[in-house]
């Protein structure tokens, strides 16, 4: 167990070095950029590896807090599902909805091919 010491009302322990931040490689960033659908240039990748390393090292501070028993908080309000009666109400017409489309055809959004050719 990492050493622990009391700090305020909760306990702080040394950060478990889960993934050494410097270990975020250029390939990792390229992979993440692919997942995020951003076609980063080589120069951007080079720069971002270093920048993300610094940021990750800093935000990893959250791991110093021993919060095993703490319930995660995803939202500032206690959320309840909000519904409304299932009634038709006015909405945008097709023309307004399509007005900003990069390309349109037959009252629809026109998009590039979505399947591979084979």
């Amino acid at each position: 167990m990492p050493p622990e010491h009391a700090r305020g009302r909760f306990v702080v322990r040394e950060a478990p070095r889960l993934a050494p931040m410097s270990a975020l490689s250029r390939d990792d960033v390229a992979h993440l950029a692919g997942l995020a659908r951003i076609d980063l240039s080589d120069a951007e990748l080079d720069r971002m590896v270093g920048e993300l390393g610094v940021i990750l090292e800093s935000v990893a501070k959250v791991q110093e807090v021993a919060a095993d028993e703490i319930e995660p908080m995803s939202h500032p309000l206690p959320l309840t599902n909000v519904t409304r009666p299932d009634e038709v109400r006015p909405s945008l017409g097709a023309e307004a909805a399509l007005a900003a489309a990069p390309e349109k055809e037959q009252q629809r959004f026109s998009v590039p091919r979505i399947l591979d050719e084979d």
């Binding site: 909760f10 889960l18 993934a19 993440l32 997942l35 935000v59 990893a60 959250v62 791991q63 807090v65 919060a67 703490i70 319930e71 995660p72 908080m73 995803s74 500032p76």
Partner: peptide, 20 residues
């Protein structure tokens, strides 16, 4: 991303609770 979620996002949400 899978494998890092608990250490980062999950842990941040717990810290958020402590702040509240």
């Amino acid at each position: 991303s899978s494998g890092y979620y608990d250490a980062y996002y999950g842990q941040a949400q717990k810290v958020r609770r402590l702040i509240a």
